[in-house]
């Protein structure tokens, strides 16, 4: 019974994606929506990304320096580890996990409210493919913005690490710089970007699915918003495991 329900949900999701990825009726209206979503999903998230990454970068650096580094380890270990954690996992996967909470609930509640207030029905009656008009700009908007957010997150984390050196005096800036520059593998940067693009698709499409298919009233919109965050977080974690194995 549970399996049938899961298969039914997956089928509904795939059908919605088929409708979503069809040619927009009016390119000018699509671009208008696309720019709006770039701003709403991407630009509006820069603040939280910078803030969280700054503190996590600083905390990673402090933890490594104070709790892991020992006398027999090189002085650059803290900087090196901070860079690798930020590049490989935090800025791509954990940041997307955090964004699934902010962006995912935003998308699900917006579409859910549009559904319950009959705005989606109004679009359908006008002959507009509502899935394509509403969901496609969100998916493409987040996919466009997420690499930028990953880059901002990595740099903000590194600035956080420098703050521990310059303000906290936990380690010397020279040791940190040496660690950040030690044995840099450019592929790790691209790996983070590739993973984040997959995660952006998961966040936007899964949250849109939960919002778009809401039936009922405000309670159901709230439930859909929660389900969107839970489902996209779970999918990000599973696909992170798979993608890390595939890309490493």
């Amino acid at each position: 019974m549970l399996i049938t329900q899961y298969l039914f949900t997956i089928g509904k999701y795939l059908l919605l994606m088929k409708r979503t990825f069809s040619r927009p009726e009016r390119m000018r209206m699509f671009f208008k929506q696309y720019v709006r979503e770039l701003y709403a999903l991407g630009v509006d998230s820069i603040g939280i990304v910078l803030l969280i990454s700054f503190f996590i970068g600083a905390v990673i650096c402090i933890q490594i320096k104070l709790n892991i580094q020992s006398a027999w380890m090189p002085l650059w270990v803290s900087g090196y580890t901070t860079r690798e954690i930020m590049l490989l996992e935090f800025s791509s996967s954990i940041m997307c996990l955090i964004l699934s909470g902010k962006v995912g609930s935003n998308i699900a509640s917006e579409l859910g409210t549009m559904r319950t207030s009959q705005q989606i029905d109004a679009l359908e009656i006008m002959g507009v493919n509502s899935a394509s008009y509403l969901i496609l700009p969100k998916v493409l908007g987040l996919i466009t913005m997420i690499p930028l957010l990953v880059v901002f997150s990595t740099f903000s984390g590194i600035i956080g690490a420098y703050a521990t050196a310059y303000i906290g005096g936990i380690l010397t800036p020279a040791d940190l710089t040496a660690g950040l520059q030690h044995d840099f593998t450019p592929w790790f940067f691209w790996m983070g970007i590739i993973k984040s693009i997959f995660f952006a698709f998961i966040i936007s499409s899964v949250s849109s699915f939960y919002g778009y298919t809401v039936e009922g009233g405000s309670v159901e919109v709230g439930k859909a918003s929660t389900n969107a965050v839970v489902a996209s977080s779970m999918l990000i974690l599973f696909s992170d495991l798979f993608l890390t194995n595939l890309l490493s």
Partner: peptide, 20 residues
Amino acid sequence: QQSALRREMGMIFQSAALFD
């Protein structure tokens, strides 16, 4: 064809359904 037909329709919803 349904989309084309719907362009010949207008609908006023109970909740007005205006785009906020």
